[in-house]
């Protein structure tokens, strides 16, 4: 393991931490434009974080240690997830430690901790949010796993860098199963990141909120970490999507000098810009589903991913 590899690994993680709020800010800006509102500046999420870090924490009297630990664990798991996902380079030593299944495990860990923390104070909204989030999670997680399964079968590996390398080796052979997987993945991405058809990141309407309900009791630095972690989660999901479906531009093993890395960063930023705009467009065009429809939506994502698997096996690439 060379020093350069470590630099690459840490550089990628730091980049993720740094630009994740920017990505959320960009989506919010696009959404505002699409809805003919005056857009907040691109740096709004950073200002928000700064403000939150400066405030004093107001902690509920009966909060337990679990509640106070959770923001750090959330942030930590998301940072680790960023270390596994090849967003700019595939030569990631940490990806050997935890493959894509472990990545899903990390997401699940974050979700379980946040849900437990939401139940900790014992308020009506907290436990409602926890229940809803776990419901979404238990349907979205297998869908995501099935999407990844498609990629595993194509590349013969469950490590994301190998998946990327396998697909960049044959750039024109887009497997038809990936079509299904891509649609399913998009649906999961929207659901898992509390975006429009399932949850509205901009709402504080008590009865429809999910993510917001769980973070309700958090304040100041805790809330800042929770929010930052959810920005990172969205960023991570976007990068998983790029790695699976649009792997071009990621610096592969052996071809990852400084120039290639610079290029990879530029390509990543370009992809994020387009993806952010596309997400904003999708969110603006669709209406929020009733919570009772959410299982149906996610079941569809799950079935689509399974169908992708099936198509792959049947068409026998």
């Amino acid at each position: 393991m060379t020093a350069l590899t470590m630099v690459r690994q840490f550089g990628e993680v730091l980049l993720a931490i740094a630009i994740a709020p920017l990505f959320s800010g960009w989506i919010a800006q696009c959404r505002a434009w699409l809805q003919s509102r005056a857009a907040p500046p691109l740096t709004q999420p950073y200002r928000m974080l700064r403000k939150l870090f400066q405030k004093d924490v107001a902690l509920a009297t009966n909060a337990s240690a679990l509640f106070r630990m959770t923001p750090y664990i959330l942030f930590g798991t998301m940072v680790l997830a960023a270390a596994i996902i090849p967003s700019i380079a595939t030569d990631l030593p940490f990806a050997r430690v935890a493959d894509a299944i472990a990545l899903i495990g990390l997401f699940a860990t974050a979700r379980v901790f946040l849900s437990l923390a939401a139940m900790d104070i014992g308020t009506a909204f907290g436990s409602m949010g926890a229940r809803r989030d776990m419901m979404i999670g238990f349907l979205a997680e297998p869908a995501l796993l099935m999407v990844l399964f498609n990629a595993f079968l194509l590349s013969g590996s469950t490590a994301l860098p190998n998946v990327v390398e396998a697909s960049t080796a044959h750039p024109f052979l887009m497997d038809p199963s990936l079509l299904f997987a891509a649609v399913a993945f998009l649906m999961v991405l929207l659901a898992e990141n509390a975006r429009i058809p399932i949850d509205n990141p901009a709402t504080h309407l008590e009865l429809t909120m999910i993510h917001e309900a769980m973070a309700l009791e958090y304040s100041a630095r805790h809330l800042a970490l929770v929010e930052w972690a959810s920005d990172l989660k969205l960023f991570n999901y976007a990068c998983i999507g790029f790695a699976l479906f649009l792997p071009w531009g990621i610096a592969t093993h052996g071809a990852d000098g400084a120039l290639a890395l610079g290029l990879a960063v530029a390509v990543l930023l370009a992809k994020l810009t387009v993806a952010g705009a596309a997400l904003a467009l999708i969110e603006s065009l669709s209406a929020k589903l009733r919570i009772f429809r959410a299982p149906e939506y996610l079941a569809m994502a799950f079935l689509l991913a399974v169908l992708g698997l099936l198509v792959h096996l049947l068409l026998g690439a």
Partner: peptide, 28 residues
Amino acid sequence: MHPSHLIAALLKLLAASLLLISFAMLSR
């Protein structure tokens, strides 16, 4: 890549989209 392979791959893609649209119709 041989052009006929490319065409076969494209056809598979189109066939898969056909199936995808069929499922989309079921779900709408």
